[in-house]
Design a protein around this nucleic acid. Structure first.
Length: 854
RNA sequence: GCGGAAGUGGUGAAAUGGCAAACACACUAGCCUUAGGAGCUAGCGCCGAAAGGCUUGCGGGUUCAAGUCCCGCCUUCCGCACCA
């Protein structure tokens, strides 16, 4: 019975139909030029890595962004809502090894598959601006930026200890090492290797990256805090302790000795508390400190002890709890001289000193530092008080006394100064005498971008025996990845094995030269992709500055908090570099950032190993895209974790079915009232009509408000459900014609408009059912009329001594005294106040009344 | 250890100092039959026959009024963690 079957909501019929129509109309989601005169709105979701399959985290991320984009379109904004592919990276090479498929082919196939999934979900992207980072028309600009940065001294090459992941067979940035393990291989311990590497000088922007965090008021405080911690700015002083001369040891290797002093070797330490220097009772070196090597060269026993300390650090690093390492140390038998008073203090090597922070050496002040105190107590090193609390009688304050609110004691001529005054004076002396200076240390390190991989952007440099490092000339860009390459597991750069890639003519001298064979970290790609969206086809420059000037900064960026430091700090850096290159005007790329919660199932993050992965394709096949997306928004507020329960998706699907039946049932009647309803609606509407219109306008107001502030879209969906429930509850009266066609029309068409941002397919179908010609997507967002939304009677809770007793009905605008009278007249109130004194009555008009009774 | 977020029915959650549990899920009972992953009606925090009482992790406080604000504690999750 085909006719009957029609009366069932069937997303499998509706959705593909509209998907086809939308695909045939690219202008639907296209951003307009600046000249459109509309206010602009740039909404962006983080681009995915094309693994081949969308997961529920993506579905949630894109459902949030799509609802926002649709809302802004309907509000009359010129919206840029793009999508692209973070398409370089190691998995493509692994897949090549496994399936013998070239990385390019594998990646492009995955992109096609995921794009189909996105289109099936009905996500409204402007595909004309699509960016695919592994294609030459994109990565040539990575190379172009690399060269501009090289010219500005922001790119350099140095041999350094690098993080090496044996599984990736490549180098990792510090940011990609988590608790001593690879960020992609949880079980793989990262090794340290010595390699020539390319670096971006992100530290040149450390101060600005830190300071500008204060401007990012639209960012979660959590993310800003994480970035602050990561940058780790610390003000202090570098001071040289003089190494006591000792004939027995040759002193030619003075690597700890940055400024060759006239009096022999020095040990430079970094401290934030130079005011405590008269309490320094030892100098502690990191086991890897260059000076240590010179001590152990002629002392096998000491060397063994130091190796043991290195081993302890390595183990702690692998265990991921460097902070919990038990402190061990060994005295070297050597001594250093305090530059301020010539005091002779022992030099130790300790496992709690890190070579990669500060200078790899400290002055140990056990009286005023917890860690030094613990160490000194264990090894019997002198603990001396040099700071007393500012208050009189403070000599009794227990050591270690670590606060800076104090005055110096036992510090010679500096006695009596406050810590702050002393620091300034001591720094001035150090600078004058040339044994130290005020300095700022960062935890942030320069960004190592070299990768010994194939599937990445080739670094556009040439090594010439005669001319040294030579830039690839701009007109030779892009340096293309050779298409045919054998991927193997052997170490070293795969590009190095492609002779026709490596052998090149030097652009300067024309002689034979070698191409650089490293490729760039894929975080380079994602550092500026969102600029390219504004001008994705530009073949002459990375983008037209005028377009960027119009669209930037991004109004709303949406993604997972896992990118809080990596991607989001690199992007900020790149923006500042582009600004200093004169390409853009904005200091920051993103005005507002939203970090969504994770999608979990059965209390755990979805993962193959736990077997709790829910496939978006399955959900769409069973319940449709609308129900899947709407559930992703309904089950929890967007910032919280979302527990995926399939029964909940089914529930949303049933709800959409109710909407479908309701609208299709009454559309013919509603359509009769399409025109005659604009002025004096309130006067025209009475009884049931007024009641339903009121609920409609309240719902519209509520949803509009959520988009403007709190973003609790789950309550928006709930509000639409309430509205539908209320209409459905009076189905019999509607059928009896109790509601005038113009009211019915406003009711149903507004319902469809509200639904359009969450369930676009169904909304499009029902919009057509209601006889509307244009796209529901471009229809104006309904406006809530405050007069219509207003209740004319209110229920006021009445409390006695703070306990709810009853509820009284009063007119909406009732004055305090009328509410008071109504409350006192209430039977339950009279019963409870009989024989007692009403001492006080508090009335908050429109809200509550409370009687204080004794 | 430091910093942040959270803790409410059987479950997901709602309540922006003013009726705790909206909206859903699950469940129970009934109806319907086009037997569907459908629809409709009613019930559903706890104790109680009812009247009524109790209830937002625990303990204090502010307030006429606290899930919401303040103080202390507990638990869970996240970030940082010998950073000198």
């Amino acid at each position: 019975m085909a006719e009957e079957k029609e009366f069932r909501y069937d997303p499998a019929l509706i959705e593909p139909k509209w998907q086809e129509r939308w695909a045939a109309d690219p202008a639907l989601y296209a951003a307009e030029p600046a000249a459109s005169g509309k206010p602009k709105y740039y909404v962006l979701e983080m681009l995915p890595y094309p693994s081949g399959q969308l997961h529920m985290g993506h579905v949630r991320n894109y459902s949030i962004g799509d609802a926002l984009a649709r809302h802004m379109w309907m509000r009359g904004y010129n919206v840029l809502h793009p999508m692209g592919w973070d398409a370089f990276g190691l998995p493509a090479e692994n897949a090549a090894l496994k399936n013998n498929t070239p990385p390019r082919e594998w990646t492009l196939n995955n992109i096609a598959a995921m794009k189909r999934q996105m289109q099936r979900l009905g996500l409204g992207y402007d595909w004309a601006t699509e960016v695919t980072t592994c294609l030459p028309d994109y990565y040539r600009w990575n190379q172009w930026f690399f060269l501009r940065m090289y010219e500005k001294g922001l790119v350099y090459r140095k041999k350094s200890k690098v993080n090496w992941c044996p599984d990736c067979a490549t180098v990792l940035a510090n940011e990609q090492v988590i608790d001593g393990r690879c960020w992609r291989h949880e079980d793989t311990i990262v090794e340290q290797r010595d390699l020539e590497q390319w670096f971006f000088r992100i530290t040149a922007y450390a101060d600005e990256l830190l300071d500008d965090l204060d401007k990012l008021e639209g960012w979660p405080e959590k993310v800003r805090t994480m970035q602050r911690n990561w940058i780790g700015r610390s003000e202090g002083t570098e001071v040289d302790f003089f190494l006591e001369e000792q004939e027995a040891v040759n002193s030619e290797q003075g690597a700890g000795n940055r400024e060759q002093g006239t009096k022999g070797q020095r040990i430079r330490v970094f401290t934030t508390r130079v005011d405590t220097i008269f309490g320094a009772t030892s100098v502690q070196l990191a086991p890897q400190h260059a000076l240590v090597a010179s001590f152990t060269a002629a002392d096998a026993v000491l060397k063994a002890q130091v190796d043991e300390l290195i081993e302890q650090q390595k183990k702690a690093r692998e265990a991921g709890d460097l902070g919990a390492i038990e402190k061990h140390g060994v005295a070297t038998g050597r001594f250093a001289l305090n530059p301020y008073n010539g005091e002779r203090v022992p030099i130790w090597v300790a496992n709690y000193i890190l070579m990669d922070y500060g200078t790899g050496a400290i002055m140990s002040v056990p009286g005023h530092d917890e860690r030094d105190f613990e160490f000194a107590t264990k090894y019997g090193i002198e603990i001396r008080r040099v700071i007393a609390p500012a208050q009189p009688g403070g000599e009794d304050a227990a050591l270690p006394f670590t606060t800076e609110d104090g005055v110096l004691v036992n510090s010679g001529e500096y006695d009596g100064l406050t810590c702050t005054e002393a620091e300034k004076r001591l720094q001035a002396v150090a600078e004058r005498e040339g044994f130290g200076k005020a300095t700022v240390t960062f935890r942030l390190k320069d960004w190592g971008v070299s990768r010994q991989r194939y599937w990445g952007t080739p670094i556009p440099m040439i090594h010439c025996e005669r001319d040294g490092l030579v830039q690839v000339p701009d007109e030779q860009l892009p340096v293309l990845l050779p298409p045919q390459i054998e991927i193997t597991q052997q170490g070293g750069s795969p590009l190095g094995r492609v002779a026709e890639f490596v052998h090149v003519t030097c652009p300067k001298c024309g002689g034979p030269a070698r191409r650089e064979t490293d490729t760039m970290d894929t975080f380079v790609d994602s550092s500026w992709y969102f600029y390219r969206y504004t001008d994705a086809k530009n073949a002459a420059q990375p983008f037209d500055p005028a377009r960027v000037g119009y669209w930037f900064p991004i109004d709303q960026y949406i993604g997972g908090v896992e990118h809080a430091i990596l991607h989001l700090i690199y992007s900020r850096f790149w923006t500042k570099v582009m600004r200093d290159l004169g390409l853009i005007k904005n200091d920051e790329p993103v005005r507002r950032l939203f970090t969504q919660g994770m999608v979990i199932k059965d209390g755990a993050k979805m993962s193959k190993s736990k077997g709790n992965v829910v496939s978006p394709d399955d959900m769409v096949a069973r319940y449709g895209a609308d129900a899947t997306r709407m559930y992703a928004l309904f089950a929890a507020p967007p910032d919280r974790d979302l527990d995926w329960q399939e029964d909940g998706v089914a529930g949303v699907s049933r709800f959409l079915g109710r909407v479908w039946r309701l609208v299709t049932k009454y559309a013919p009647v509603a359509n009769m009232g399409r025109s005659g309803w604009s002025q004096s609606r309130k006067e025209g509407a009475t009884g049931l009509s007024l009641k339903l219109l009121r609920k409609l306008h309240q719902t519209t107001a509520k949803i509009t408000l959520e988009f403007e502030g709190r973003w609790h879209f789950n309550t928006c969906v709930a509000a639409i459900m309430e509205l539908v429930n209320e209409v459905q509850a009076v189905d019999a009266r509607l059928a009896a014609g109790e509601v005038e066609p113009p009211v019915l029309h406003e009711l149903l068409s507004s319902l469809v408009l509200l639904l359009a941002i969450f369930a676009p397919y169904l909304a499009a179908e029902l919009w057509e059912e209601l006889g509307e010609a244009g796209s529901v997507l471009r229809a104006p967002w309904p406006v809530s009329d405050p007069e219509l939304a207003k209740e004319d009677e209110l229920e006021i809770p009445v409390q006695i001594n703070g306990k709810l007793v009853t509820v009284v009905r009063v007119a909406a605008g009732a004055a305090a005294k009328d509410i008071e009278a109504a409350a006192l007249a209430d039977a339950k109130v009279q019963l409870r106040t009989a024989g007692k004194t009403v001492a006080k009555i508090i009335v908050v008009p429109g809200r509550a009344a409370n009687l204080v009774v004794k």
